[in-house]
Amino acid sequence: MRHLLTRLLACLALSAAPLVAGAAPHAYALETDTSVVGFAWTLGPDTVKGTMPVKRADMVIDFDSAANTHVAVALDVTGAVAGFPFATQGMKSRKVLWADRFPEITFESTAIRPDDDGAEVDGLLTVRGITRPVTFRAQLYRQKGTQPGDRRRLAIVVTGSLSRAAFGADGWSGMAGDRVDLTILARIRREE
């Protein structure tokens, strides 16, 4: 993952690239095989990393207007891996994500605020059926092998944190920390 990110970051950051003439809202499809939702949580003094597959994603990006940009993502809780088998079982159990009853985690953007280094993405995150407003940090890059200014294939790195307790996913709080850090790498392809 780190190697992948290093390669991506070595590419030109799209946010610094000149805009393509005629920019308009474009729908993008997620390349699910090469996209990954990574998360990190603490077990006592240790940090444990896990992954969760992306089930579907609907993305419309307008490089001229953040207001026209919209992202909706659903994650597959049942396919998540929390670092080691017990942790995975615990995470999917009723005490935490309750995967049997709530097999998806969803996120829908409500506002995107671009800045010099990417964007702040406000949205509604639904975990265990509880919806809370969250803000994630997003940075957009073109993928390796593409030319500067070519926005047909992009990579988005989203980072942020959330509180398990805020979503009622507070099981084993004596062992596992409340904070979960997210690092999402989404590779997307413009739909023609």
Partner: peptide, 8 residues
């Protein structure tokens, strides 16, 4: 004990 990867 403090639960950790080592003590699990």
């Amino acid at each position: 004990m403090e639960v950790s990867l080592a003590t699990l």
